[in-house]
């Protein structure tokens, strides 16, 4: 399995991860199509909370269309089979199945790791583990 992880609390809120994610996956300059959540906690305590998919597979378990499958070490959505019912969005324990009005299928991290080298704060890492 591969999964994106968040280490520490040094996120500076630049959102490069979201933008690059959207550019790579959709060729769209649109941070709203990134598969990472960055929540600002201001004025206090003055931190960003970053939420990423840990590839738990709950989305696949609840999908009535069986549109989410394990492929190349991560759970991926087959957009052709997705009906856009939103069951996975509701079921996601981390709140990281995103929707956008342009798209039927939700947006989900596929652990591609593109964002990792461009996180200047070293918050994002890609963990690769043997099949559990």
């Amino acid at each position: 399995m591969k999964r994106l992880t968040v280490t520490g609390e040094a996120c500076s809120g630049c959102r490069v991860c979201q933008l690059l994610c959207a550019l790579v996956h959709f060729h769209d300059n649109n941070v709203k199509k990134g598969a990472i959540a960055v929540h600002g906690l201001f004025p206090a305590p003055g931190r960003y909370r970053v939420e990423v998919c840990d590839q738990c597979g709950e989305c696949a378990r609840v999908c009535p269309e069986e549109a989410i499958g394990l492929e190349d070490g991560a759970w991926r959505i087959d957009a052709k089979r997705c009906s856009g019912c939103g069951a996975c969005v509701d079921a996601c324990p981390s709140g990281v199945m995103f929707t956008h009005s342009d798209l039927v299928a939700p947006i989900k991290c596929d652990a591609c790791g593109e964002c990792v080298p461009f996180c200047s704060r070293g918050v994002l890492e890609l963990a690769e583990e043997g099949n559990r």
């Binding site: 500076s12 630049c14 704060r121």
Partner: peptide, 14 residues
């Protein structure tokens, strides 16, 4: 408390 940056910034001056 935090190095806080603007959009797209890898050298946060905030």
């Amino acid at each position: 408390v935090l190095d806080k940056g603007c959009f797209g910034c890898p050298i946060p001056c905030g």
